[in-house]
Nucleic acid binder design. Structure first.
Length: 492
RNA sequence: CGGGAUGUAGCGCAGCCCGGUAGCGCGUUCGUCUGGGGGGCGAGAGGUCGCAGGUUCGAAUCCUGUCAUCCCGACCA
């Protein structure tokens, strides 16, 4: 009907856009490259954010907030980082508008209000944060400093896509300072584990933990850890990154501390982040041609109850039955909605809640009242069953758990079936041009080869998996000796 | 920044080639019958045709410019 969505087969990109727009996650805005996150999409982000925030705090971090603007002189202090982001920075040059004398009703930038120093709108906050940390850290007793911030950042992208790449996006960025290298490395690894746990257990999305190659590494980092997920179209998506920054920022911003021997040392740093991009990953990994499929643990709504009735009398009976059930479910911590809006009919509601990916739908009508039953439909398998009203809360709790596990298992099976070894460039390309996925291949370790393969196949090295087995072989491209396979894929 | 496409009612589109004052579906409003998979019937409301110029007696339609968005590339989380 009016909410037909494009099928995955006919046009995957269009399917994704349709889903995001029609399920009410986001909307385009009047600003090029920037989107509006609508209430339903934001509710999803809130659930993700709340859980991540809890996990950060459980690992000893605290939240703070740093400015949106970074003076250019600070921004350029860490050279590699500045260079890496320079091409996509929005810059504030003036601080005032005035009426345009040549055009009535229009405003113009006041040329007399030019800033002495331009302000860079943060593409990431290392610069302003390390400039601040300098004043906070004197002694080893001030360490470690474990701070996270929830913020927006701006990266002026040429080409944008809802959630996956927008000019402005929401994220969290953790920035930590440590007395020793080992401690900082451990922190970066720990946060990678936190991300992996969150994405797998809450978003039901299996990930591969790994390390980036030098050319894919965060600008200014010594080492970049990442979690990589696989979408249904066979393309990979970086779901989160955690960086060991060494002493690069400490040196650039002169952040030193006195150690126990009263020697001055530069501190060791990490930073780590995930963004609203995760919502894009969630959509592309689980959803189907009917709409979103959301994992119960982060679904804004877990259960929707739809009454089916003729006349006020039946409606009142259903209300009474549902009322106590809703109370019970809420007490059990279930996010439930009783949709008794009489403006939409049951069939319409069924389709609408499927589009929105609500994990469970309960329909109750006159027949059910007689039989003390209800019709329960699960979104992931689209399976419908008649269940007893007795013990229904337990039935629902169990099903929600089952959906969560099943969604993960399904995504994991798909992912596992799409990690394919290749030993020739012919195989390599055949896999990518076919169903896609990760191609596990030997690489000689040089940036030149990596670049050449990218040029030829559009595939990049997504990561060198953690605990990657040693295996002697020859580079798939250059034929030079190699000690391990790495994962290639076309990526978002 | 290069290539392609689109802008007409809240949404999706037709009309444009061949100029004559705007139409369809969905939604919406009212009434009614309805209700277990996106309802039926009847009656309404709703549009300076993205914006600015130009050609013409007359422009949604032709011309020029401009803005915006989407898709494909180069860049990136």
């Amino acid at each position: 009907m009016s909410k037909e969505i494009t099928s995955r087969n006919s046009d995957y990109s269009k399917w994704y856009n349709d889903l995001v727009l029609k399920a009410g996650l986001a909307d385009y805005s009047a600003v090029r490259g920037c989107m509006v996150i609508k209430p339903y999409g934001f509710a999803l982000w809130e659930n993700m954010r709340d859980q991540l925030d809890k996990m950060f705090k459980d690992t000893g971090h605290v939240n703070a907030y740093f400015p949106l603007f970074v003076p250019k002189s600070l921004f350029e202090a860490e050279e590699k980082n500045a260079e890496g982001f320079a091409k996509e920075c929005a810059v504030v040059t003036h601080y005032r508008l005035k009426a345009d004398p040549n055009k009535k009703g229009s405003l113009m930038v006041d040329p007399e209000a030019k800033l002495e120093e331009e302000l860079v709108v943060r593409p990431t906050s290392e610069a302003i944060i390390w400039n601040t940390y300098k004043g906070w850290i004197q002694s080893y007793r001030d360490l470690p400093l474990l701070i996270n911030q929830w913020a927006n950042v701006v990266r002026w992208e040429m080409r944008t896509r809802l959630f996956l790449r927008t000019a402005e996006f929401l994220w969290q960025e953790g920035h930590t300072a440590h007395a020793t290298e080992q401690e900082a490395v451990a922190e970066a690894e720990q946060m990678l584990e936190v991300y992996a746990e969150f994405v797998e257990e809450w978003m039901a999305l299996p990930v591969i933990k790994g390390v980036k190659t030098e050319s894919e590494r965060f600008a200014g980092a010594v080492n970049t850890y990442c979690i990589e997920a696989l979408m249904q179209d066979g393309k990979a998506l970086q779901a989160g990154t955690s960086h060991f920054l060494g002493q690069n920022f400490a040196k650039a911003f002169d952040v030193k501390f006195s150690d126990k021997e009263n020697k001055l040392e530069y501190v060791w740093a990490t930073s780590w982040g995930v963004s609203t991009r995760l919502i894009g990953a969630l959509v592309m990994a689980h959803s189907d041609d009917e709409g979103l499929v959301l994992p119960p643990r982060i679904a804004p709504l877990q259960v929707v109850i739809v009454p089916i009735f003729k006349g006020e009398e039946q409606k009142a009976q259903i209300d009474a039955r549902v009322g106590s059930l809703v109370q019970e479910l809420k007490k059990a911590g279930v996010r439930v909605k009783y949709d008794d809006n009489d403006n939409a009919r049951p069939g319409w509601k069924f389709a609408e809640y499927e589009l929105k990916g609500v994990p469970l739908r309960l329909a109750i009508g006159a027949r059910d009242l007689e039989n003390n039953s209800a019709e329960l439909a699960r979104r992931d398998t689209r399976e419908k069953m008649s269940v007893s009203m007795d013990g229904l809360t337990d039935t629902i709790l169990q099903l929600l758990d089952d959906i969560q596990l099943r969604m993960f298992a399904k995504a994991r099976d798909y992912r596992d079936a799409h990690i394919i070894p290749a030993d020739t460039m012919e195989d390599f390309l055949r896999i990518l041009d076919g169903e896609g996925g990760f191609v596990s291949a030997h690489w000689d370790g040089t940036a030149e080869t990596e670049e050449a393969i990218k040029e030829k196949t559009k595939a990049t090295i997504r990561c060198i998996p953690l605990n990657n087995p040693e295996e002697n072989g020859t580079c798939i491209f250059s034929g030079k000796p190699s000690t391990q396979r790495v994962l290639f894929a076309r990526a978002y």
